[in-house]
Design a protein around this nucleic acid. Structure first.
Lengths: 197, 197
DNA sequence: ACCTGAACACCGTTCAAGT
DNA sequence: ACCTGAACACCGTTCAAGT
């Protein structure tokens, strides 16, 4: 019962967020949508921010699940590329969730931290696999992962605010920028192969 | 007089933002700090969001000024690198302003858009200069600029939320990631120089 | 352990009125 | 043209009380 109400509250908050942005997420509407009173949330969360943190954690956990589910098949590098594109797609489909998830948190929610670490960990494993196959250059895999992640994140955020393409010519989409970075690594790989011969 | 009040209101909002985050920016405190009543802002801005948009515009205009002031001296590539590091530094020094500036705006403020375009335009000019000197590879300068900007932006944002370095070992700072990208372009340049010989 | 209804302090916004 | 004070609707949070 209690678990159920908690889940309903989180789902309601996410739905309100998608429909009307952060301002639309009021505890009164969340309660109404979950079929409880406007301050029932206080029996499950310390305050509003903790409820929002639960929404963010849900997003990050789903993300981690997607990352882990992506088996490093033939080409780990291609898997990484698809995952990064998926990250951008998620941000563009649910901009409010994206903004919330990476917003400023007063609470140092352990739940939030571990969820983020889980998805980054899965990503690092794929980068390591790509390095092992020679598809990406050697070096600290954690740092290389951060490079891809930071670009995907920044490109998505700037695109969301219209700060990326000047006239919307569409020649600098987040996906394009990601592929540019991947191409840059391919160029280096070729060089190494040539000098090695 | 009116200009003065307007400027005072914007400055007060920025100060409150720095001190206590977005929640601390109430029209009542803004007015109090500017020495006017709590609804005097409505004589200068349509609503609270427009006041916040003015704060964001001020930040972007200052940014544009910095970008333009950076003369492309000996090495435009180095100038670009310093500017990108400065961008990250700005984000880390004034995280609340950074978050606000690139937050979700309902208003399609023309002021905001042109301010952002101005700083990006100055950056593009530097990238073009670097390309002309052979310090960066050829290609759409707007797109190449976006690549650097997106990485700087994403790295700064992730760092602000603690999503970058796992254990704070400091080996994946935004500055490091930016330099990694710059190094990647250097590697390619070398290759071109060698094959060209 | 979970929930409710009333109440409190606070906030954005509006309005009538002043200069 | 700019500002003020009162008022309104709304929100997060608390509390006493119920099961």
């Amino acid at each position: 019962m209690s678990r159920d109400t908690r889940t309903l509250l989180v789902a309601a908050a996410a739905e309100l967020l998608d429909k009307g942005g952060p301002a639309a997420v009021t505890l009164r509407d969340v309660g109404r949508m979950a079929g409880v009173s406007h301050n029932a949330p206080y029996k499950h969360f310390a305050d509003k921010e903790e409820l929002l943190a639960a929404v963010a954690s849900r997003e990050l956990l789903r993300q981690a699940k997607t990352m882990k589910a992506a088996r490093a098949q033939k080409s780990p590098r291609e898997v990484l590329r698809v995952l990064m594109h998926g990250y951008v797609r998620w941000a563009r489909t649910y901009p409010a969730r994206f903004k919330l998830t990476f917003g400023a948190w007063k609470t140092d929610s352990a739940e939030l931290g571990t969820a983020a670490d889980a998805s980054r960990g899965a990503l690092i494993a794929i980068v390591e696999a790509a390095q092992a196959k020679g598809e990406l250059p050697k070096g600290d895999p954690e740092r290389l992962t951060s490079l891809f992640l930071a670009l995907a994140h920044g490109a998505a955020d700037l695109a969301l605010n219209g700060h990326l393409a000047a006239k919307g010519k569409g020649h600098a989409d987040p996906e394009d920028l990601l592929d540019d970075l991947f191409a840059r690594f391919a160029a280096t790989k070729k060089r190494k192969a040539r000098t090695g011969r």
